[in-house]
Design a protein around this nucleic acid. Sequence first.
DNA 1: GCCGTTTTCGGCCCGACTGTTTTCAGTCG
Length: 573
Amino acid sequence: MIMQNSEIAAQLSRLADLLEIEGANPFRVRAYRNASRTVANLPKPVIDLVAEKADLAELPGIGADLADKISTLANTGELILLKEIEQRTPALLSELLKIEGLGPKHVKVLYNQLGIHSLAELKRALGENKICQLKGFGKKTAQKIQTGLERFTARRRTKLYDAIQLARPLLAYLRTAPGVDKLEMAGSYRRKKETVGDLDILVTAPNGKLIVDHFIHYPEISKILMQGDTRCSVLLHSQLQVDLRVVPPISYGAALLYFTGSKAHTISLRRLALQKDLKINEYGVFHKEKRIAGASEAEIYELLGLTYIEPELRELRGEIKASRLKQLPRLVVQQDICGDLHSHTNATDGENSLEQMAKAAINKGYQYLAITDHSTSLKIARGLDTRRLLAQLEEIDTLNAQYGSQFTLLKAIEVDILIDGSLDLPNAILEKLDLRVCAIHSHFGLAHQKQTERIIRAMDNPYFNILAHPTGRLINKRQAYAIDLERILQAAKERGCFLELNAQPDRLDLTDIHCRLAKDIGVKLAISTDAHNANQLDYMQLGVYQARRGWLEAENVLNTYNLTELRKLLKRD
DNA sequence: GCCGTTTTCGGCCCGACTGTTTTCAGTCG
Protein backbone atom coordinates (compact mmCIF):
# COMPACT_ATOMS: atom_id res chain seq x y z
CA MET A 1 0.00 0.00 0.00
CA ILE A 2 1.38 3.39 -1.02
CA MET A 3 1.42 5.99 1.71
CA GLN A 4 0.98 9.76 1.43
CA ASN A 5 3.46 12.16 3.01
CA SER A 6 1.02 13.21 5.71
CA GLU A 7 0.47 9.58 6.69
CA ILE A 8 4.19 8.84 6.72
CA ALA A 9 4.74 11.88 8.91
CA ALA A 10 1.99 10.70 11.26
CA GLN A 11 3.55 7.23 11.57
CA LEU A 12 6.98 8.69 12.33
CA SER A 13 5.47 11.00 14.89
CA ARG A 14 3.65 8.11 16.55
CA LEU A 15 6.86 6.13 16.57
CA ALA A 16 8.56 9.04 18.33
CA ASP A 17 5.74 9.21 20.89
CA LEU A 18 5.87 5.51 21.69
CA LEU A 19 9.66 5.49 21.94
CA GLU A 20 9.47 8.44 24.29
CA ILE A 21 6.92 6.72 26.50
CA GLU A 22 9.20 3.69 26.62
CA GLY A 23 11.97 5.97 27.81
CA ALA A 24 14.18 5.72 24.73
CA ASN A 25 17.14 8.00 24.12
CA PRO A 26 15.57 11.48 23.85
CA PHE A 27 17.79 12.36 20.91
CA ARG A 28 16.63 9.34 19.03
CA VAL A 29 13.07 10.43 19.73
CA ARG A 30 13.90 13.88 18.45
CA ALA A 31 15.37 12.40 15.27
CA TYR A 32 12.03 10.74 14.51
CA ARG A 33 10.13 13.95 15.30
CA ASN A 34 12.41 15.96 13.02
CA ALA A 35 12.00 13.40 10.27
CA SER A 36 8.23 13.59 10.66
CA ARG A 37 8.30 17.36 10.24
CA THR A 38 10.65 17.14 7.28
CA VAL A 39 8.38 14.68 5.47
CA ALA A 40 5.29 16.76 6.23
CA ASN A 41 7.01 19.80 4.72
CA LEU A 42 8.06 18.09 1.49
CA PRO A 43 6.49 19.66 -1.60
CA LYS A 44 6.46 16.35 -3.45
CA PRO A 45 5.19 12.88 -2.50
CA VAL A 46 7.96 10.68 -1.08
CA ILE A 47 6.87 7.94 -3.42
CA ASP A 48 7.73 10.18 -6.39
CA LEU A 49 11.12 11.02 -4.91
CA VAL A 50 11.79 7.32 -4.45
CA ALA A 51 10.74 6.65 -8.05
CA GLU A 52 13.15 9.35 -9.22
CA LYS A 53 15.90 7.61 -7.23
CA ALA A 54 16.39 10.76 -5.13
CA ASP A 55 18.59 10.19 -2.06
CA LEU A 56 16.35 10.80 0.94
CA ALA A 57 19.41 10.78 3.21
CA GLU A 58 20.35 14.15 1.76
CA LEU A 59 17.35 15.72 3.46
CA PRO A 60 18.31 17.54 6.66
CA GLY A 61 18.17 15.33 9.75
CA ILE A 62 17.60 12.18 7.69
CA GLY A 63 20.38 9.61 7.67
CA ALA A 64 20.71 6.19 6.09
CA ASP A 65 18.46 4.53 8.66
CA LEU A 66 15.56 6.99 8.47
CA ALA A 67 15.83 7.24 4.69
CA ASP A 68 15.30 3.50 4.54
CA LYS A 69 12.39 3.59 6.98
CA ILE A 70 10.71 6.46 5.13
CA SER A 71 10.90 4.78 1.73
CA THR A 72 9.67 1.53 3.27
CA LEU A 73 6.69 3.38 4.73
CA ALA A 74 6.03 5.11 1.40
CA ASN A 75 6.07 1.82 -0.49
CA THR A 76 4.41 -0.59 1.94
CA GLY A 77 2.68 1.57 4.54
CA GLU A 78 4.24 -0.59 7.22
CA LEU A 79 7.29 -0.61 9.44
CA ILE A 80 8.67 -3.58 11.37
CA LEU A 81 10.00 -1.39 14.18
CA LEU A 82 6.62 0.20 14.72
CA LYS A 83 4.90 -3.17 14.81
CA GLU A 84 7.38 -4.45 17.38
CA ILE A 85 6.89 -1.45 19.61
CA GLU A 86 3.13 -1.65 19.34
CA GLN A 87 3.27 -5.17 20.75
CA ARG A 88 4.77 -3.78 23.93
CA THR A 89 3.18 -0.33 24.00
CA PRO A 90 -0.35 0.28 22.68
CA ALA A 91 -0.48 2.67 19.75
CA LEU A 92 -3.27 4.69 21.35
CA LEU A 93 -0.90 5.88 24.07
CA SER A 94 0.38 8.43 21.60
CA GLU A 95 -3.10 10.02 21.72
CA LEU A 96 -2.69 10.58 25.45
CA LEU A 97 0.49 12.56 24.83
CA LYS A 98 -1.53 15.13 22.92
CA ILE A 99 -3.27 16.14 26.12
CA GLU A 100 -1.78 19.27 27.57
CA GLY A 101 -0.07 18.65 30.88
CA LEU A 102 0.37 14.96 30.21
CA GLY A 103 3.86 13.94 29.14
CA PRO A 104 5.60 10.65 28.43
CA LYS A 105 6.57 9.90 32.02
CA HIS A 106 3.07 10.27 33.35
CA VAL A 107 1.56 8.35 30.44
CA LYS A 108 3.90 5.49 31.21
CA VAL A 109 2.83 5.44 34.86
CA LEU A 110 -0.85 5.58 33.90
CA TYR A 111 -0.37 2.62 31.59
CA ASN A 112 1.79 0.53 33.91
CA GLN A 113 -0.15 1.17 37.12
CA LEU A 114 -3.73 1.52 35.89
CA GLY A 115 -3.60 -0.08 32.44
CA ILE A 116 -4.88 3.12 30.85
CA HIS A 117 -4.28 3.13 27.12
CA SER A 118 -7.08 5.24 25.67
CA LEU A 119 -8.80 8.58 26.21
CA ALA A 120 -11.98 6.80 27.32
CA GLU A 121 -10.12 4.88 30.03
CA LEU A 122 -8.37 8.01 31.16
CA LYS A 123 -11.71 9.75 31.51
CA ARG A 124 -13.12 6.86 33.54
CA ALA A 125 -10.09 6.76 35.85
CA LEU A 126 -10.42 10.48 36.48
CA GLY A 127 -14.09 10.02 37.35
CA GLU A 128 -13.22 7.22 39.79
CA ASN A 129 -10.60 9.38 41.51
CA LYS A 130 -7.91 6.82 40.81
CA ILE A 131 -5.34 9.14 39.33
CA CYS A 132 -4.73 11.45 42.27
CA GLN A 133 -3.83 8.41 44.37
CA LEU A 134 -0.87 7.46 42.19
CA LYS A 135 2.58 8.21 43.53
CA GLY A 136 3.79 11.57 42.23
CA PHE A 137 0.39 12.67 40.93
CA GLY A 138 -1.70 14.42 43.56
CA LYS A 139 -4.94 16.38 43.32
CA LYS A 140 -3.65 19.32 41.26
CA THR A 141 -2.14 17.08 38.62
CA ALA A 142 -5.38 15.13 38.26
CA GLN A 143 -7.25 18.41 37.88
CA LYS A 144 -4.78 19.57 35.25
CA ILE A 145 -5.22 16.37 33.27
CA GLN A 146 -9.00 16.75 33.55
CA THR A 147 -8.79 20.27 32.11
CA GLY A 148 -6.40 19.12 29.40
CA LEU A 149 -8.73 16.30 28.45
CA GLU A 150 -11.71 18.66 28.19
CA ARG A 151 -9.75 21.07 26.05
CA PHE A 152 -8.42 18.28 23.86
CA THR A 153 -11.87 17.21 22.74
CA ALA A 154 -12.86 20.79 21.88
CA ARG A 155 -9.49 21.84 20.49
CA ARG A 156 -8.86 23.23 17.07
CA ARG A 157 -6.24 25.54 15.65
CA THR A 158 -7.49 29.08 15.16
CA LYS A 159 -7.45 30.61 11.70
CA LEU A 160 -4.96 33.44 11.41
CA TYR A 161 -7.65 35.95 10.47
CA ASP A 162 -9.70 35.10 13.58
CA ALA A 163 -6.58 35.28 15.71
CA ILE A 164 -5.87 38.77 14.39
CA GLN A 165 -9.39 39.88 15.39
CA LEU A 166 -8.88 38.49 18.91
CA ALA A 167 -5.37 39.91 19.28
CA ARG A 168 -6.18 43.50 18.36
CA PRO A 169 -8.25 44.51 21.41
CA LEU A 170 -6.00 42.48 23.70
CA LEU A 171 -2.92 44.35 22.51
CA ALA A 172 -4.70 47.67 22.95
CA TYR A 173 -5.55 46.66 26.53
CA LEU A 174 -2.01 45.53 27.33
CA ARG A 175 -0.61 48.75 25.92
CA THR A 176 -2.12 50.50 28.96
CA ALA A 177 -0.31 48.30 31.51
CA PRO A 178 2.10 50.17 33.81
CA GLY A 179 5.66 50.33 32.45
CA VAL A 180 5.06 48.72 29.07
CA ASP A 181 7.87 49.49 26.69
CA LYS A 182 7.76 47.27 23.61
CA LEU A 183 4.78 45.07 22.86
CA GLU A 184 4.87 42.48 20.10
CA MET A 185 3.07 39.38 18.93
CA ALA A 186 5.44 36.42 18.59
CA GLY A 187 4.92 32.72 17.82
CA SER A 188 3.19 31.39 14.74
CA TYR A 189 1.09 34.57 14.67
CA ARG A 190 4.21 36.58 13.85
CA ARG A 191 5.30 33.94 11.36
CA LYS A 192 1.86 34.42 9.77
CA LYS A 193 1.06 30.76 9.78
CA GLU A 194 -2.38 30.04 8.33
CA THR A 195 -3.58 28.80 11.70
CA VAL A 196 -2.26 29.44 15.19
CA GLY A 197 -2.41 27.18 18.23
CA ASP A 198 -2.22 30.07 20.70
CA LEU A 199 -1.23 33.72 20.94
CA ASP A 200 2.28 34.55 22.17
CA ILE A 201 2.75 38.09 23.37
CA LEU A 202 6.11 39.56 24.25
CA VAL A 203 6.41 42.65 26.43
CA THR A 204 9.48 44.49 27.60
CA ALA A 205 9.15 46.27 30.90
CA PRO A 206 11.26 46.84 34.01
CA ASN A 207 8.76 45.05 36.25
CA GLY A 208 7.15 41.90 34.87
CA LYS A 209 4.83 41.38 37.81
CA LEU A 210 3.01 44.65 37.14
CA ILE A 211 2.37 43.58 33.56
CA VAL A 212 1.14 40.13 34.57
CA ASP A 213 -1.18 41.65 37.19
CA HIS A 214 -2.68 43.93 34.58
CA PHE A 215 -2.95 41.14 32.02
CA ILE A 216 -4.97 38.78 34.21
CA HIS A 217 -7.70 41.40 34.55
CA TYR A 218 -8.45 41.40 30.83
CA PRO A 219 -12.22 40.88 30.71
CA GLU A 220 -12.12 38.24 27.96
CA ILE A 221 -10.13 35.82 30.13
CA SER A 222 -12.06 32.74 31.22
CA LYS A 223 -9.30 30.92 33.08
CA ILE A 224 -5.77 31.51 34.32
CA LEU A 225 -3.67 28.47 33.49
CA MET A 226 -0.36 29.57 34.91
CA GLN A 227 0.98 32.72 36.48
CA GLY A 228 4.52 33.76 37.37
CA ASP A 229 6.52 36.99 37.52
CA THR A 230 7.70 36.86 33.92
CA ARG A 231 5.22 34.47 32.31
CA CYS A 232 1.51 33.95 32.37
CA SER A 233 -0.87 31.73 30.39
CA VAL A 234 -4.61 32.20 30.17
CA LEU A 235 -7.59 30.92 28.27
CA LEU A 236 -9.92 33.39 26.56
CA HIS A 237 -13.67 32.88 26.36
CA SER A 238 -13.06 32.03 22.71
CA GLN A 239 -11.02 29.03 24.03
CA LEU A 240 -7.86 30.51 22.52
CA GLN A 241 -4.84 30.28 24.82
CA VAL A 242 -2.68 33.35 25.32
CA ASP A 243 0.89 33.16 26.62
CA LEU A 244 2.39 36.38 27.89
CA ARG A 245 6.10 36.80 28.56
CA VAL A 246 7.89 39.81 29.97
CA VAL A 247 11.63 40.45 29.61
CA PRO A 248 13.89 43.45 30.25
CA PRO A 249 14.42 45.76 27.23
CA ILE A 250 18.03 44.68 26.84
CA SER A 251 16.80 41.17 26.00
CA TYR A 252 14.15 42.21 23.51
CA GLY A 253 15.78 40.79 20.37
CA ALA A 254 16.79 37.51 21.97
CA ALA A 255 13.36 37.02 23.48
CA LEU A 256 11.55 37.93 20.27
CA LEU A 257 13.74 35.53 18.32
CA TYR A 258 13.09 32.75 20.77
CA PHE A 259 9.35 33.28 21.20
CA THR A 260 8.78 33.72 17.48
CA GLY A 261 10.23 30.32 16.69
CA SER A 262 9.71 28.10 14.98
CA LYS A 263 11.13 25.75 17.52
CA ALA A 264 13.16 23.98 14.86
CA HIS A 265 14.53 27.30 13.60
CA THR A 266 15.63 28.50 17.02
CA ILE A 267 17.20 25.17 17.90
CA SER A 268 19.26 25.41 14.73
CA LEU A 269 20.38 28.91 15.66
CA ARG A 270 21.42 27.74 19.11
CA ARG A 271 23.43 24.91 17.63
CA LEU A 272 25.09 27.35 15.28
CA ALA A 273 25.95 29.50 18.28
CA LEU A 274 27.46 26.54 20.14
CA GLN A 275 29.82 25.94 17.22
CA LYS A 276 31.06 29.48 17.74
CA ASP A 277 31.41 28.89 21.47
CA LEU A 278 28.40 31.09 22.16
CA LYS A 279 25.22 30.42 24.09
CA ILE A 280 21.81 31.78 23.10
CA ASN A 281 18.85 31.92 25.44
CA GLU A 282 15.87 34.24 25.58
CA TYR A 283 17.90 36.85 27.46
CA GLY A 284 20.73 37.31 25.03
CA VAL A 285 23.80 35.86 23.37
CA PHE A 286 26.57 35.00 25.79
CA HIS A 287 30.27 34.26 25.48
CA LYS A 288 31.13 32.44 28.71
CA GLU A 289 29.24 34.59 31.23
CA LYS A 290 29.42 37.80 29.20
CA ARG A 291 26.46 39.08 27.23
CA ILE A 292 27.53 40.17 23.78
CA ALA A 293 24.18 40.73 22.01
CA GLY A 294 20.44 40.46 22.48
CA ALA A 295 18.74 43.82 22.09
CA SER A 296 17.72 43.20 18.48
CA GLU A 297 17.13 40.16 16.32
CA ALA A 298 19.28 41.62 13.56
CA GLU A 299 22.41 41.78 15.70
CA ILE A 300 21.98 38.18 16.76
CA TYR A 301 21.70 36.93 13.20
CA GLU A 302 24.72 39.05 12.29
CA LEU A 303 26.74 37.57 15.12
CA LEU A 304 25.99 34.12 13.74
CA GLY A 305 27.18 35.15 10.29
CA LEU A 306 23.65 35.36 8.93
CA THR A 307 21.59 38.04 7.25
CA TYR A 308 18.26 38.90 8.86
CA ILE A 309 15.62 36.23 8.32
CA GLU A 310 12.01 37.37 8.04
CA PRO A 311 9.67 35.66 10.56
CA GLU A 312 7.61 34.08 7.76
CA LEU A 313 10.67 32.10 6.65
CA ARG A 314 11.63 30.71 10.06
CA GLU A 315 10.39 27.17 9.52
CA LEU A 316 13.73 25.46 8.98
CA ARG A 317 13.04 24.98 5.31
CA GLY A 318 16.44 26.05 4.05
CA GLU A 319 16.32 29.65 5.27
CA ILE A 320 19.43 29.40 7.44
CA LYS A 321 21.58 28.13 4.61
CA ALA A 322 20.11 30.69 2.20
CA SER A 323 20.83 33.41 4.75
CA ARG A 324 24.43 32.31 5.17
CA LEU A 325 24.87 32.39 1.39
CA LYS A 326 23.08 35.76 1.20
CA GLN A 327 20.50 34.15 -1.07
CA LEU A 328 17.32 34.88 0.84
CA PRO A 329 14.41 36.04 -1.30
CA ARG A 330 13.28 39.65 -1.16
CA LEU A 331 9.76 38.81 -0.07
CA VAL A 332 6.73 40.38 -1.71
CA VAL A 333 5.02 43.13 0.34
CA GLN A 334 1.52 44.53 0.23
CA GLN A 335 2.79 47.72 -1.47
CA ASP A 336 3.89 45.63 -4.47
CA ILE A 337 0.30 44.70 -5.25
CA CYS A 338 -1.18 46.63 -8.21
CA GLY A 339 -4.65 45.14 -8.23
CA ASP A 340 -6.99 42.27 -7.46
CA LEU A 341 -7.85 39.62 -10.04
CA HIS A 342 -10.83 37.89 -8.42
CA SER A 343 -13.92 39.69 -7.08
CA HIS A 344 -17.70 39.39 -7.13
CA THR A 345 -20.60 41.82 -7.34
CA ASN A 346 -24.29 41.65 -6.53
CA ALA A 347 -24.87 40.42 -10.07
CA THR A 348 -24.15 36.99 -8.58
CA ASP A 349 -23.35 36.18 -4.95
CA GLY A 350 -21.49 39.37 -4.03
CA GLU A 351 -22.98 42.11 -1.87
CA ASN A 352 -21.87 45.31 -3.58
CA SER A 353 -22.37 46.89 -6.99
CA LEU A 354 -19.75 47.18 -9.69
CA GLU A 355 -19.32 50.82 -8.87
CA GLN A 356 -18.90 50.22 -5.13
CA MET A 357 -16.29 47.54 -5.76
CA ALA A 358 -14.42 49.82 -8.15
CA LYS A 359 -14.49 52.68 -5.66
CA ALA A 360 -13.04 50.45 -2.92
CA ALA A 361 -10.27 49.29 -5.25
CA ILE A 362 -9.44 52.88 -6.21
CA ASN A 363 -9.27 53.79 -2.52
CA LYS A 364 -6.69 51.05 -2.05
CA GLY A 365 -4.56 52.67 -4.74
CA TYR A 366 -5.05 49.80 -7.18
CA GLN A 367 -4.57 50.19 -10.94
CA TYR A 368 -7.07 47.48 -11.74
CA LEU A 369 -9.76 45.22 -10.36
CA ALA A 370 -11.02 42.15 -12.22
CA ILE A 371 -14.76 41.53 -11.86
CA THR A 372 -15.15 37.77 -11.87
CA ASP A 373 -18.73 36.85 -11.19
CA HIS A 374 -19.82 33.23 -11.41
CA SER A 375 -20.84 31.43 -14.60
CA THR A 376 -24.14 29.79 -15.56
CA SER A 377 -23.86 26.37 -13.97
CA LEU A 378 -23.33 27.70 -10.46
CA LYS A 379 -27.06 28.12 -9.93
CA ILE A 380 -26.81 28.71 -6.20
CA ALA A 381 -24.87 31.93 -6.90
CA ARG A 382 -27.17 33.00 -9.74
CA GLY A 383 -24.32 32.45 -12.20
CA LEU A 384 -24.23 34.66 -15.31
CA ASP A 385 -25.24 33.39 -18.71
CA THR A 386 -24.01 34.98 -21.94
CA ARG A 387 -26.79 37.57 -22.01
CA ARG A 388 -26.27 38.81 -18.45
CA LEU A 389 -22.50 38.78 -18.83
CA LEU A 390 -22.76 40.93 -21.97
CA ALA A 391 -24.87 43.41 -20.04
CA GLN A 392 -22.20 43.54 -17.30
CA LEU A 393 -19.49 44.18 -19.90
CA GLU A 394 -21.40 47.20 -21.19
CA GLU A 395 -21.74 48.53 -17.67
CA ILE A 396 -17.99 48.12 -17.16
CA ASP A 397 -17.29 50.05 -20.36
CA THR A 398 -19.41 52.93 -19.10
CA LEU A 399 -17.62 53.01 -15.73
CA ASN A 400 -14.15 52.68 -17.24
CA ALA A 401 -14.88 55.70 -19.43
CA GLN A 402 -15.35 57.69 -16.20
CA TYR A 403 -12.20 56.45 -14.48
CA GLY A 404 -9.69 57.51 -17.14
CA SER A 405 -6.25 55.91 -17.33
CA GLN A 406 -5.60 55.73 -13.56
CA PHE A 407 -7.88 52.79 -12.94
CA THR A 408 -9.45 50.00 -14.97
CA LEU A 409 -12.15 47.49 -14.23
CA LEU A 410 -11.08 44.31 -15.99
CA LYS A 411 -13.77 42.32 -17.77
CA ALA A 412 -13.52 38.84 -16.38
CA ILE A 413 -15.39 35.78 -15.15
CA GLU A 414 -15.01 33.00 -12.63
CA VAL A 415 -15.99 30.28 -15.04
CA ASP A 416 -16.75 26.75 -13.87
CA ILE A 417 -14.63 23.86 -15.01
CA LEU A 418 -17.21 21.20 -15.84
CA ILE A 419 -16.71 17.53 -15.10
CA ASP A 420 -15.31 16.80 -18.57
CA GLY A 421 -12.82 19.67 -18.35
CA SER A 422 -14.77 21.99 -20.63
CA LEU A 423 -15.55 25.55 -19.54
CA ASP A 424 -19.04 26.63 -18.60
CA LEU A 425 -19.40 29.42 -21.22
CA PRO A 426 -18.82 29.39 -24.99
CA ASN A 427 -15.44 30.58 -26.26
CA ALA A 428 -17.32 33.18 -28.31
CA ILE A 429 -18.07 35.10 -25.12
CA LEU A 430 -14.89 34.17 -23.21
CA GLU A 431 -12.82 35.80 -25.94
CA LYS A 432 -14.48 39.17 -25.26
CA LEU A 433 -12.99 39.23 -21.75
CA ASP A 434 -9.67 40.54 -20.41
CA LEU A 435 -9.11 37.41 -18.37
CA ARG A 436 -10.75 34.21 -17.24
CA VAL A 437 -10.46 32.75 -13.74
CA CYS A 438 -11.37 29.07 -13.90
CA ALA A 439 -12.63 27.08 -10.95
CA ILE A 440 -13.89 23.74 -9.77
CA HIS A 441 -17.15 23.97 -7.80
CA SER A 442 -18.50 20.49 -8.37
CA HIS A 443 -17.50 16.82 -8.38
CA PHE A 444 -14.89 17.25 -5.65
CA GLY A 445 -14.74 13.50 -5.19
CA LEU A 446 -13.19 12.51 -8.52
CA ALA A 447 -10.20 10.19 -8.32
CA HIS A 448 -6.72 11.69 -8.24
CA GLN A 449 -5.87 11.13 -11.87
CA LYS A 450 -9.30 12.07 -13.23
CA GLN A 451 -9.40 15.31 -11.27
CA THR A 452 -5.90 16.22 -12.41
CA GLU A 453 -6.72 15.52 -16.04
CA ARG A 454 -9.98 17.42 -15.79
CA ILE A 455 -8.04 20.54 -14.81
CA ILE A 456 -5.30 20.07 -17.40
CA ARG A 457 -7.93 19.55 -20.11
CA ALA A 458 -9.50 22.84 -19.07
CA MET A 459 -6.10 24.50 -19.41
CA ASP A 460 -6.01 23.30 -23.00
CA ASN A 461 -8.72 25.84 -23.72
CA PRO A 462 -6.84 28.91 -25.05
CA TYR A 463 -8.98 31.20 -22.87
CA PHE A 464 -7.93 29.61 -19.60
CA ASN A 465 -5.82 32.07 -17.58
CA ILE A 466 -5.90 31.43 -13.84
CA LEU A 467 -6.86 28.35 -11.85
CA ALA A 468 -8.86 29.65 -8.86
CA HIS A 469 -8.50 28.14 -5.36
CA PRO A 470 -6.53 25.26 -6.88
CA THR A 471 -7.04 22.57 -4.23
CA GLY A 472 -10.50 23.51 -2.94
CA ARG A 473 -9.56 23.01 0.69
CA LEU A 474 -11.35 24.89 3.45
CA ILE A 475 -9.29 25.21 6.62
CA ASN A 476 -10.74 23.08 9.45
CA LYS A 477 -13.68 22.16 7.20
CA ARG A 478 -12.86 20.46 3.93
CA GLN A 479 -9.88 18.51 2.66
CA ALA A 480 -8.22 19.47 -0.60
CA TYR A 481 -9.55 17.41 -3.46
CA ALA A 482 -7.21 14.78 -4.81
CA ILE A 483 -4.95 16.29 -7.47
CA ASP A 484 -1.36 16.07 -8.65
CA LEU A 485 -0.44 19.69 -8.12
CA GLU A 486 3.05 19.32 -9.50
CA ARG A 487 1.65 18.02 -12.81
CA ILE A 488 -0.87 20.83 -12.88
CA LEU A 489 1.88 23.38 -12.30
CA GLN A 490 3.96 21.86 -15.08
CA ALA A 491 0.94 21.94 -17.38
CA ALA A 492 0.27 25.58 -16.46
CA LYS A 493 3.86 26.48 -17.20
CA GLU A 494 3.76 24.81 -20.61
CA ARG A 495 0.52 26.58 -21.54
CA GLY A 496 1.17 30.04 -20.14
CA CYS A 497 -1.47 29.68 -17.41
CA PHE A 498 -1.31 30.81 -13.79
CA LEU A 499 -2.55 29.56 -10.46
CA GLU A 500 -4.30 31.56 -7.80
CA LEU A 501 -3.34 32.02 -4.20
CA ASN A 502 -6.84 32.62 -2.87
CA ALA A 503 -6.66 34.93 0.14
CA GLN A 504 -10.04 34.16 1.75
CA PRO A 505 -9.36 33.48 5.45
CA ASP A 506 -10.72 29.94 5.34
CA ARG A 507 -9.16 29.06 2.00
CA LEU A 508 -5.58 30.37 1.80
CA ASP A 509 -5.36 28.04 -1.13
CA LEU A 510 -2.49 27.37 -2.09
CA THR A 511 -0.53 26.47 1.03
CA ASP A 512 2.89 27.96 1.74
CA ILE A 513 4.61 24.78 0.59
CA HIS A 514 2.66 24.75 -2.67
CA CYS A 515 3.47 28.43 -3.27
CA ARG A 516 7.12 27.56 -3.04
CA LEU A 517 6.67 24.63 -5.39
CA ALA A 518 5.05 26.99 -7.92
CA LYS A 519 7.99 29.37 -7.59
CA ASP A 520 10.47 26.53 -8.07
CA ILE A 521 8.65 25.29 -11.15
CA GLY A 522 8.36 28.85 -12.48
CA VAL A 523 4.63 29.51 -12.43
CA LYS A 524 3.53 32.94 -11.27
CA LEU A 525 0.66 33.11 -8.78
CA ALA A 526 -2.16 35.62 -8.63
CA ILE A 527 -2.82 36.65 -5.03
CA SER A 528 -6.58 37.23 -5.15
CA THR A 529 -9.12 38.03 -2.48
CA ASP A 530 -12.18 36.47 -4.12
CA ALA A 531 -13.93 39.40 -2.42
CA HIS A 532 -17.69 39.07 -2.09
CA ASN A 533 -17.98 42.62 -0.77
CA ALA A 534 -15.86 45.75 -0.79
CA ASN A 535 -14.40 45.19 2.70
CA GLN A 536 -13.08 41.79 1.71
CA LEU A 537 -10.56 43.42 -0.62
CA ASP A 538 -8.60 43.76 2.64
CA TYR A 539 -7.99 40.00 2.65
CA MET A 540 -5.12 40.78 0.28
CA GLN A 541 -2.88 41.14 3.32
CA LEU A 542 -3.56 37.54 4.35
CA GLY A 543 -2.66 36.38 0.86
CA VAL A 544 0.56 38.34 0.94
CA TYR A 545 1.45 36.76 4.29
CA GLN A 546 0.92 33.30 2.84
CA ALA A 547 2.93 34.19 -0.28
CA ARG A 548 5.81 35.37 1.90
CA ARG A 549 5.75 32.05 3.75
CA GLY A 550 6.08 30.46 0.32
CA TRP A 551 9.26 32.50 -0.38
CA LEU A 552 7.53 34.50 -3.14
CA GLU A 553 9.09 37.69 -4.43
CA ALA A 554 7.18 40.41 -6.27
CA GLU A 555 8.21 39.04 -9.65
CA ASN A 556 6.60 35.69 -8.78
CA VAL A 557 3.22 37.34 -8.24
CA LEU A 558 1.07 38.13 -11.27
CA ASN A 559 -0.74 41.10 -9.76
CA THR A 560 2.42 43.00 -8.89
CA TYR A 561 2.74 43.86 -12.57
CA ASN A 562 1.22 47.05 -13.95
CA LEU A 563 -1.72 46.87 -16.32
CA THR A 564 0.36 46.90 -19.52
CA GLU A 565 2.66 44.14 -18.26
CA LEU A 566 -0.29 42.18 -16.93
CA ARG A 567 -2.06 42.19 -20.30
CA LYS A 568 1.11 40.94 -21.93
CA LEU A 569 1.48 38.13 -19.38
CA LEU A 570 -2.14 37.05 -19.86
CA LYS A 571 -1.73 36.71 -23.60
CA ARG A 572 -1.41 33.04 -24.59
CA ASP A 573 0.22 32.20 -27.89
C1' DG B 1 19.15 8.45 15.15
C1' DC B 2 22.02 12.31 13.19
C1' DC B 3 26.24 14.62 12.44
C1' DG B 4 31.33 16.69 11.69
C1' DT B 5 36.12 23.97 9.18
C1' DT B 6 38.73 20.59 16.24
C1' DT B 7 35.29 15.24 16.00
C1' DT B 8 33.44 8.79 12.66
C1' DC B 9 32.56 9.12 18.78
C1' DG B 10 30.36 11.85 21.79
C1' DG B 11 27.88 15.20 21.72
C1' DC B 12 22.82 16.68 20.78
C1' DC B 13 18.94 24.18 23.05
C1' DC B 14 17.64 26.17 27.20
C1' DG B 15 14.95 28.28 30.92
C1' DA B 16 10.29 29.04 33.61
C1' DC B 17 6.79 27.23 36.18
C1' DT B 18 4.24 23.63 38.75
C1' DG B 19 3.37 20.14 41.97
C1' DT B 20 4.84 17.03 45.00
C1' DT B 21 8.57 17.27 47.04
C1' DT B 22 12.19 18.02 51.27
C1' DT B 23 15.88 19.11 46.50
C1' DC B 24 13.76 17.99 41.95
C1' DA B 25 11.25 15.67 38.08
C1' DG B 26 7.92 16.61 34.65
C1' DT B 27 6.11 19.51 31.25
C1' DC B 28 6.01 23.22 28.18
C1' DG B 29 7.38 26.43 24.72
